[in-house]
Amino acid sequence: MNAPNDVPRHERAAPAPSAVTVRGLTKAYGRGATEVVAVRDVDLTIVSGEVVLVMGPSGSGKTTLLLMLGALLRPTSGSIVVTGRDGTRVDVAAEPEKALPALRTRSFGFIFQDYALLDALTAAENIAVAANLAGTKGAAARQRALTLLERVGLAHRAAARPTELSGGEQQRVAVARALANDPPVLLADEPTANLDASRGRDLARLLRRLADEDERCIVIVSHDDRLREVADRVLWLEDGRFKTVTDLFIDPVCQMPVAATGPAFEWAGRSLRFCSAGCRSEFINDPGRFRITTGGQPGAEITGGAGL
């Protein structure tokens, strides 16, 4: 089992109750010779109020892990115990299929990369519909929607359709919708991927605030290195396993974080790391096009790193 990431990094005066406890979580697709293990025997404990950032190369199993945490995908084995606000504990992996919709409304709030708002509904209705799914209807649902819009600073945009909102506004509506049923866990999939730097930073701070003020635990899957600022812990998932990472590099082509454990390349006196062979080839073909954060002479040969 992967023990190193099983302990929350941040220190608290009194230990917070754990909100999510994952043990031996595995997800395999296919069988026999075609079997692919996307997540392998993962252990993880997340406490209330903690923001956990899961990073890793493409195809490392990040989204699969998030889907399983949110009861959107059945694990092949393992357990995911979620502690509700009332203290009740539920093993998501062991719940029958019929119980999952109610569990999702009660326990999880989802924030998607492309916001996933319903274009047919207004901002307030997008939130109210999530409240409806948990049984809150009529004026109570409308009021809840308005309160949450106010909390994310969008009360004045309640009647706007998603197509009338900017990307940043849409993502804030999506955050408000995720809070509609006051879930103990928020799950975010690349929440800043479609936002510019300033709006991405705003959203990161908003997520941090939601974790601190509501004692909510937040799991973010992202390539965005900026989110490290607000995370209590950064977990590196590679080949379906959490790995201990001492340092992260930024791929000069796609700007994605790359673990120091991968092969290194020498270029103009600098040590570079790439997320994939594609990015490395692109860099070799036109190194002058990419931003290198430290030193180096353009035009120098790239060497080493046979592993990619």
Partner: peptide
């Protein structure tokens, strides 16, 4: 997509 979102939200 919209219906998938609703299902993910708990429909």
């Amino acid at each position: 997509r919209d219906l998938g979102v609703l299902k993910a939200l708990g429909a």
